[in-house]
Amino acid sequence: MNPTMLSITIALLFGIGTFMILRRDMIKVAIGITVLSHATHMLIVTSGAFLGGKVPIITSDHESGSGIIFMDDIAAGVFAPIVPEGTEMIYSDPLVQALTLTAIVISLATTAVLLILAYRVYQEHGTTDLNEIRRLKG
């Protein structure tokens, strides 16, 4: 994975999401929220991805000592996803994938609620135009 391309993609997704959130249509706002969440998921994944890193699944034929999975040494100033100099990092950070999966599940639930809400609002108000749905004031 090329980090530059990834960051450009994430930035584009954030831009698209922000643009969609500012639209007047309720469904477009829901889509914007979804795009923004997925941009965030990609951001989380990239925070643990390394150039040329292997998939962090340890099979039974894994030889010990062939690479570092996780380095953490406060005294040497080494923090986990940052690889110390002179060592070879062959696995990606597995934690970020768990985080992303959790975030995806949560964003699924939120998107479902948001879309149902948009549908119910359409039933009650007869429109999905956010400029016409402003009965609460004061």
Binding site: V29, I33, V113, L117, R120, V121, I133, L136
Partner: peptide
């Protein structure tokens, strides 16, 4: 109520 929840949910998501 639905209008209020839509505001709440969208802003919370952001």
């Amino acid at each position: 109520k639905l209008e209020a929840i839509f505001k709440y949910l969208v802003l919370n998501m952001v």
